[in-house]
Nucleic acid binder design. Structure first.
Lengths: 234, 234
DNA sequence: AAAAACATATCAATCGATTGACTTATTACG
DNA sequence: CGTAATAAGTCAATCGATTGATATGTTTTT
């Protein structure tokens, strides 16, 4: 079995590339919906419109397809958040190089942007299976966890830590800032994880564009009420 | 008719009750760890030390065992949170009957208690499989979801809504209070759902007693910083 | 022709469930 | 009381269906 494509995409694989793409696209949906064990190879290939044999042929095994799907997912997500991440990251590095510090207002603006992107990406309907893929991978890490964590979670979390550190006026590396970073993530993630309970409690039929807009507003509010512990609290 | 049999547990079922108990206890762990599809009947019966046939005999089917396990879980949880829930619930009803309203300080105290209970129940290690059972049931509802939601989630959420309504000085039924209730839940739940990422970011080896204490402190802080939108924010 | 891509027909393993025989406990009856 | 009849509980053996993977043949491209 030789499906190595080390340096270049051979012209011969024009057909193959289409098949791979179809399979990855379908696998992202099927794996996201049913998980690794829950998704059968028949299901995966039928959803992609390819033969059962295509899995061992192109990806070696079911597990190979899964790992490839995880990387495909990260690439897809990067097309959605890559710009924002690069922009904020560059801004932070520019400040570092100039020896200047991030203003609180800027930090709030960036943090709001990140959380609102999380809403769109995690709670929205069109990316439902993606989100389930990621949540599942967090809760029960598989072989692909390290890649997903390093590629998506970690950079986002550490960027969030820095921003929250500025807003709370604390060390971004402190335990407290790390904890508060996770609480903010959880504040959004809960609308995906407890999806059924959310629909029941909010009296929503589904999470459509209208609901996403409400949650984006909520994300902005969460950043607004975030602040250093004030002495003058009753 | 010298001996009543109908009201009390029949002497005949003493053995059966032991077997059922063993099976439910083992099933709670196995289902929690691997999910419904992931747990095999062999696994379930071997963990309980009973024969494969015990599942159809006592619970009709694997699904019957699963539903029974969900109800068993709720009973177990009730032994942990039942007292608190009853105490707060009674207090609220007493106030209602007297036409009095809940003070903000009391609301904060109760809410902190609820969140800290969530920490112990969801994040602690000894109840890890329980928590995973519940989280899984939320994310991919099965036949047992309605029971779990009605029995555990809903009463807790609606009690939280009432308390948060007092603190935010808003209508507990409003959309905003509902949203903020979920964000609080998510702030704790995230430490279970993104467990692997939490360990990596917090540089923890595991979530033991020490970490639970830290998270209980975080829960208290989250209630502290909760308040009606203040005008004097810079 | 040679390689790449696709398809058919299986494989052994495991799934949940069922069968029917077996042991133990409870009830019925003399 | 004692003992046979009945029910309750346990067990190994096995069912058809499905799982991921493979062996091998066919078509397409170079």
């Amino acid at each position: 079995m030789n499906q190595e494509r080390d340096t270049q995409t051979p012209l011969a694989s024009a057909r193959a590339e289409i098949a791979r793409q179809k399979m990855l696209s379908a696998a992202l949906d099927v794996f996201g919906r049913y998980g690794f064990d829950g998704a059968s190879t028949r299901q995966l290939t039928e959803a992609a419109g390819v033969n059962l044999q295509a899995i061992p042929y192109y990806f070696g095994s079911k597990e190979g397809l899964y790992i490839a799907t995880a990387e495909y997912l990260m690439a897809r997500i990067d097309t959605h958040v890559g710009d924002m991440r690069a922009r904020i990251g560059t801004h932070l590095m520019t400040l570092d190089a100039a020896g200047k510090s991030l203003s609180e207002a800027e930090a709030r603006r960036f943090l709001t942007e990140i959380l609102q992107t999380m809403v769109t990406l995690f709670v929205g309907k069109e990316s439902e299976s993606w989100a389930r893929f990621l949540v599942r991978e967090q809760m029960e890490p598989t072989e692909a966890f390290a890649r997903v964590y390093q590629g998506i979670m970690r950079p986002m979390i550490e960027m969030g830590r820095r921003l929250i550190g500025v807003i709370l006026r604390e060390d971004p590396a402190s335990e407290h800032v790390r904890l508060r970073t996770f609480t903010l993530i959880g504040s959004i993630l809960v609308f995906r994880v407890t999806h059924a309970a959310v629909l029941a409690q909010m009296e929503w039929d589904a999470v459509g564009a209208e609901q996403v807009e409400i949650l984006r507003g909520l994300a902005a509010e969460l950043v607004d009420v975030l602040g250093p512990s004030k002495a003058g609290a009753a």
